[in-house]
Amino acid sequence: MSFFKKMKEKLSTQTDSVTDKFKDGLSKTRSSFVGAVNELVKDYRIVDEDFFEELEEILISADVGVNTVMELVDDLREEAKRRNIKDAENIRPLITEKLSELLVKSDEDTRLNLQPEGELTVVLFVGVNGVGKTTTIGKMAHQLQQEGKKVVLAAGDTFRAGAIEQLEAWGARVGVDVVKQQAGTDPAAVMYDAVQSAKSKKADVLLCDTAGRLQNKVNLMNELEKVKRVITREIPDAPHEVLLVLDATTGQNAMSQAKTFGEATKVTGIVLTKLDGTAKGGIVMAIRNELDLPVKYVGLGEGVDDLQEFIPEQYVNGLFSDVVDQKAEEEQRS
């Protein structure tokens, strides 16, 4: 089946509210990034070297990342040559297709790895300072709670002033228990307690907060490894997910974060926060292209419900809905 038609079909299985959330959340990226591509197509009409150079700039300005952009544009050049595309208007679907290919990998499961009924799922959140780990946990707790799961939170950020209180505030707001100790305690000890407590409460999901840390601080990364070890000691196959929280406004350093945290804690997925605020959703593409890590959740707004499971097709559609609709129709007819 053809590419866009397949995508359309996947989209039709989802509710309109999800589709709208993605469209709304990506509106800034769409207007700046896709808008720029459209302008470019209008300005050039004919595809030449200058065209590709400007396209390069547009992609870079969306934080797609120099390496990925170079690959992508080289690819486009060749493909345009091969298909003998000279008209700039005709290259627009091609750009969409190439970017979509980066995002939509069919064999990948982007859903949270939840354990079967009756077993505890442990999710560990890691990331640098200020990306929104605690907020993400609060929102995810709310969602899981809504789904009827019993959730416990572990206040593992014992370093930053006010972090424990912040998680407690979320716990109270959502109505879930928070396991905590005093500020300054060894976070590994908090995790131990939390696992015990979650077990005895027969909780379904334990969401573990950790202090933000810059990935080049070796001792802090070691501490994180220890936290993880303690969890694994209590439940051998836990943590079932290690989610790296990334701020969408981050530039190329996001790659360094994903690599280093990935090595230290075997990250299983990425949560991309603050996507609604940035006009540059491009880092998603760089991550997908250069790292073997699925994006599992995206933050599309400040509301509790704005943390969304990442659905690549929705993301593409959120950006290029006009192209997707049009091409799917064409493919349908042919």
């Binding site: 934080d63 350093n253 540059k280």
Partner: peptide
């Protein structure tokens, strides 16, 4: 401003 901010730093 977070020193890790990407291209969006300009808009901010």
């Amino acid at each position: 401003v977070d020193a890790m901010t990407g291209q969006d730093a300009v808009n901010v």
